Amino acid sequence: MIFLGIPLGLAAIALFCWLLFTLAVFALPFFVAVSAGTWAYHAGGGWLGAIVVALIAGGVTLSIGQVLLVIVRPMWARLLIALTFVAPAVLAGYHATHGIAKLAMPSETWQIVFSTIGAIAIGITTLLQVAGMAPRGQ
């Protein structure tokens, strides 16, 4: 049984890392959705109203980002839009990597080093994914 535990544990870690890299581009819309849903719930909307408001807010945030990447022409403005999506992904990537590093190593210094490397990797991946949303040749 122990022989199955090690490969399955490694597969689970690989799956969660892949999921983190894939979903990092949605960190900003997710944050906006959670914030709007929390506001709606505390404003008296109930859990169903909070879910509806959260879905709409997250979808609108993602849509606005994609539309702005298509409409805006200057490269510096596109970079600012992309960095708006990348910054929350880097923060989420740092904390996710730090959680994994805390499980793997006792040294706090190495935890921070690996967390920083993970945040940079997730930031670069997110920047490439957001840049893929922009139209080519403009």
Rank of each mutant, 00 (worst) to 15 (best):
M1C: 05
M1L: 07
M1W: 07
M1A: 12
I2C: 07
F3R: 01
G5E: 14
I6S: 10
L8I: 00
L8Y: 01
L10F: 14
A11L: 15
A11Q: 10
A12D: 15
A12I: 09
A12S: 14
F16K: 10
F16I: 12
F16C: 04
F16W: 10
C17N: 12
L20M: 00
F21N: 00
T22R: 15
A24S: 14
V25A: 14
F26W: 01
A27R: 00
L28M: 12
F30C: 08
F30R: 01
F31Q: 08
F31E: 09
V32Y: 06
A33Q: 01
A33L: 00
V34G: 07
S35Y: 00
A40S: 14
A40D: 12
A40K: 13
Y41W: 15
A43R: 04
L48M: 03
L48E: 04
G49Y: 10
A50F: 12
V52Q: 11
V52M: 13
V53P: 02
L55A: 11
A57W: 00
G58I: 10
S63Q: 13
S63A: 15
G65M: 11
L68E: 09
L69Q: 06
I71Q: 04
R73L: 10
R78I: 08
R78M: 05
L79V: 13
L80A: 13
I81S: 05
A82K: 15
A82L: 13
L83F: 14
T84C: 03
T84N: 01
F85R: 00
F85S: 09
F85W: 06
A89P: 14
A89E: 14
A89C: 14
G93R: 03
Y94Q: 11
H95S: 10
T97N: 07
H98W: 04
H98Q: 04
I100G: 00
L103V: 06
M105V: 11
M105W: 03
P106A: 11
P106H: 03
S107M: 03
S107G: 02
W110Y: 13
Q111K: 11
I112V: 14
I112W: 03
V113R: 02
F114H: 01
F114A: 09
S115I: 10
T116A: 15
T116K: 08
A119D: 13
I120Q: 09
I122Q: 05
G123Y: 03
I124H: 07
T126K: 07
T126P: 10
T126V: 12
T126L: 10
L127K: 11
L128K: 07
L128E: 07
Q129Y: 11
Q129E: 15
Q129A: 14
V130K: 01
G132E: 05
A134E: 05
A134D: 06
P135D: 02
R136T: 03
R136A: 09
R136Q: 08
G137W: 08
Q138T: 06
Q138K: 11
